[in-house]
């Protein structure tokens, strides 16, 4: 059983949830799938006063809104993997989702929204959301705001979200899908990512976002290259763009920096050669 006591609520309205969070100061936690928060509570790494379960707030759906796809914060990996809208309009997101490990017992629970709020650099989700130009809808008693993914991820395990704010949705612009590739380097099938690369071809340009290489996703953009030398040069530029390398128990100092050019080049080539992953 979890050691430290806390108050648990599973409110039925967003207003109630936001009031509770506002009242908890910095000691309120939102629980999505719980796959990060619950083990942290069990291990005594986090000791909130209040846990707010968003399971009854009706935030679990995927909707098309004009040119955007709006994904509710409580939508699970399984919901998105089964979504025809995601498959059709966000094939890069679908490719990323297929690469998440943990098995159905995790996919049926955990949410990309939770992964984004956790902001672990070594996750599949942040880099892909930055590549897709996602925006984060944050709600609090002070009002609602939309934060672009590039501004949302502020550092390792650090986001723009304040403790009284709840992520209610991910808003993804979904123009006519172009060529895309999701490539990740990891040590074993069940391992978390060492480096991820989300690559898109948009309007004659190549957009590449690297995840896990640095504390926050790294976004680069070029005109479509026409030679293999040009791709190699792009891959070198990606490496040079890493100001601070991310290191953790999966990969120590120098490892990620060393593998980045190969990962970047593979993703770019996959897009140029029209191989989709």
């Amino acid at each position: 059983m979890i050691g430290a006591r806390f108050r648990f609520t599973r409110p039925e309205t967003l207003e109630e949830a936001l009031d509770l969070l506002a009242g908890a100061g910095g000691l309120g936690r939102v629980i999505g799938g719980g796959s990060v928060l619950v083990p942290a509570l069990v291990a005594g790494q986090d000791a909130p006063a209040l846990v707010v379960d968003i399971g009854r707030l009706g935030l679990g759906s995927v909707r098309e809104e004009d040119s955007d796809v709006v994904i509710g914060a409580a939508a699970t990996y399984a919901t998105l993997l089964a979504s025809e809208v995601v498959r059709r309009r966000l094939p890069l997101l679908a490719a990323m989702l297929r690469e998440v490990t943990g098995g159905p017992g995790l996919w049926n629970l955990a949410t990309p929204g939770g992964a984004a709020c956790y902001a672990n650099p070594a996750s599949d989700v942040p880099g892909c959301l930055v590549a897709l130009g996602a925006a984060f809808r944050l709600a609090s008693r002070r009002g609602e705001r939309l934060v672009a993914a590039e501004n949302f991820f502020r550092g390792a395990f650090e986001t723009e979200r304040s403790p009284d704010e709840m992520l209610t949705a991910l808003v993804l612009p979904a123009p006519e899908p172009g060529r895309h590739a999701y490539y990740k380097l990891k040590h074993a099938a069940s391992s978390w990512p060492i480096v991820t690369a989300s690559c898109l071809s948009i309007d004659g340009r190549i957009r590449l976002c690297l995840g896990a290489a640095a504390p926050v996703p790294l976004l680069l953009d070029w005109p479509t290259p026409s030679t293999t030398e040009a791709v190699a040069a792009m891959a070198e530029q990606v490496q040079a763009a890493i100001a601070t390398e991310w290191t953790d128990e999966l990969a120590g100092p120098g490892y990620r920096r060393a593998v980045v050019p190969a990962v970047a080049a593979r993703a770019i080539r996959a897009v140029l050669e029209e191989r989709t992953s």
Binding site: I31, V51, G105, N108
Partner: peptide, 28 residues
């Protein structure tokens, strides 16, 4: 207790989940 092993698998609303990741009160 970390979501890795799957020994705690059961069905919640008809779908398999790792029940060590779920607070009992979330099953309300």
């Amino acid at each position: 207790h970390t979501g890795d092993c799957g020994a705690c698998t059961l069905l919640l609303d008809g779908a398999v989940v790792k029940s060590c990741l779920v607070l009992a009160l979330s099953a309300e």
